[in-house]
């Protein structure tokens, strides 16, 4: 990339549940809350539908950070999708860090449909964290 570090803006992939975080993002928009434009939201039916491979593939294809967000425990539309997902994420998050992927590259959180302000704050902070890390260099596929 020809950009200097000062102007470098991270690309963040956000894998989010349709019923909560995606609606939370909508609410943030309707409420005219400002948050950094670095995230690309990918809407999925439930955090339980987030194949952990999506996270790995996002990193492989150059995401500087991956945010995963679903309904709070106990509030999943499909009752326990997020509770099963939570275990998968715990294993994956620890494992990725263990092999040397920076801890802040993958971030997991819960944001409900009524938490527009939380959504904006999450994006603010996640963007700042990933910016502090600098561009991703590990697991990336280069030709």
């Amino acid at each position: 990339m020809s950009q200097t570090t000062e102007e470098w803006e991270p690309k963040i992939v956000a894998l989010v549940c349709n019923w909560c975080t995606y609606a939370g993002a909508d609410l943030a928009g309707i409420s005219r809350l400002q948050y950094p434009p670095n995230v690309r939201l990918i809407r999925l039916p439930c955090s339980g539908r987030i194949n952990p491979f999506y996270i790995v593939k996002a990193l492989q294809h150059g995401a500087d950070g991956v945010l995963v967000s679903g309904c709070h425990p106990g509030e999943c539309h499909y009752i326990s999708g997020n509770l099963i997902a939570r275990r998968k994420f715990a294993f994956l998050n620890n494992f990725l860090n263990y092999i040397g992927i920076e801890a802040d590259r993958t971030i997991f959180t819960w944001v409900s449909a009524s938490e527009g302000d939380k959504f904006a704050r999450v994006i603010d902070e996640v963007t700042a964290k990933v910016k502090a890390l600098g561009p991703a260099t590990r697991l990336i596929k280069t030709d």
Binding site: G74, L83, R86, R87, A90, N93, F108, W110, V122
Partner: peptide, 15 residues
């Protein structure tokens, strides 16, 4: 399987 109170220390909470 899962438990409702599974450890979730890795879950990020904004300030």
């Amino acid at each position: 399987s899962f438990r409702e109170n599974d450890r979730e220390t890795f879950i990020f909470e904004p300030e």
